[in-house]
Design a binder for these strands. Structure first.
Lengths: 207, 207
DNA sequence: ACCTGAACACCGTTCAAGT
DNA sequence: ACCTGAACACCGTTCAAGT
């Protein structure tokens, strides 16, 4: 048997892609606090130092993980329907991604110069241009939509972290968090509706 | 001399207020990363464990520090001028506070259920009511303004952190004194103008 | 070249011991 | 009652040593 040209590499071969994939899995399962050098190394069956051969730092890993999620969103996104519908779809796409991966929201708010966010900014801008927004107003309009998106993103990320923590606390004892009743999460659907309402308000203010 | 009713306590007596005050000073000077149990204890000339006699945790301390800053903003705030002017002033007041204390922006985005933010939300709501916004639209309108405020807040906080880090990297070789507070923003005024532009857009969309 | 895992310099928090 | 500061259980990152 000839094995020298075997395309199937060892399953346990480490690479940046495999590390990012494992990191996303951990982040989805247990939040940003759950991603440590050691937990990641354990899930990859390797030593804790091995990761730094492929990724410069934990921050860079987090950035790359966010970029990979956002890239998936913008990839399948076309300029469909009216410009307004197209903007709504773009905003909702990012919103849904954050709902599925709350740590993305926290990270986008923490590092707004991330490549992922710059791309979203330009996607918004080009659609506003199609909408007929004058060149002079374009920057402010796109900034407002992006600012709103970031704000909601961080709110959502925080709410999920809170419910994660209170869940944990409630399991520990029956003592309840003083603010827990005020912040009980509404249905996901209501979040979406409320988010769109905000987008609608801003669009009305632009046009 | 009667000393039993002496109001002037020992200068080195520890209290929650003094701890929060010292924490704000450190946060302003060196950002959230600069506030550690040990640095705070050192600045108060006490042991690292003493802090936990007055404050439950680092997170609670951060929360209290943010509340104290925001309370200063809303305290001197009246319903002056037209409702629209009043909203602009409220939003700008918080914006300016975040500009002066960037760590506040990051913390507000991280914990949006903070008492400080709830208060801002209600302040916005009452002004929108005066503006004549129908009851049914009030929640969405206030949420949009607050969401935008949070987004800009976190962006601003992140930008300051970025320039702090690059400053530090640039100064790597030369002798640097530990006090490096003056992170000169390139265009504070432009930031303000852009922020108001966003508020204007949203207000236009509401009315 | 890639990986290991002990070691380093931190961190927040606790707690027996002091005053 | 309040404070001390060593100790504990972590953390990200490094690096001599292995393969």
């Amino acid at each position: 048997m000839v094995e020298s040209k075997n395309k199937v590499r060892r399953v346990d071969a480490l690479s940046k892609d495999r590390i990012v994939l494992a990191a996303v899995e951990i982040l989805d399962a247990s939040g940003e606090g759950g991603l440590t050098t050691r937990s990641l190394a354990a899930s990859l069956n390797t030593g804790s130092g091995a990761i730094f051969h492929h990724v410069g730092s934990r921050d860079e890993l987090l950035r790359t993980a966010v970029d990979s999620v956002i890239a998936d969103v913008t990839a399948g996104m076309a300029h469909e329907g009216t410009p307004e519908e197209s903007i709504r779809m773009l905003m909702l796409g990012v919103f849904d991604a954050i709902q599925a991966h709350p740590w993305v929201g926290a990270q986008l708010a923490r590092e707004p110069w991330q490549p992922a966010l710059l791309e979203i900014f330009f996607e918004i801008g080009s659609r506003l241009q199609l909408l007929g927004v004058p060149e002079a107003e374009l920057f402010d309009a796109a900034s407002t939509l992006l600012g709103y998106l970031l704000g909601v993103a961080s709110q959502h990320a925080a709410a999920v972290n809170l419910s994660r923590n209170t869940d944990r606390a409630n399991r520990r004892a029956s003592s309840d968090h003083p603010f827990a009743p005020h912040v009980t999460r509404l249905a996901d659907h209501d979040d979406r509706v409320q988010f769109v309402a905000g987008v609608e308000i801003i669009l009305a203010g632009i046009a």
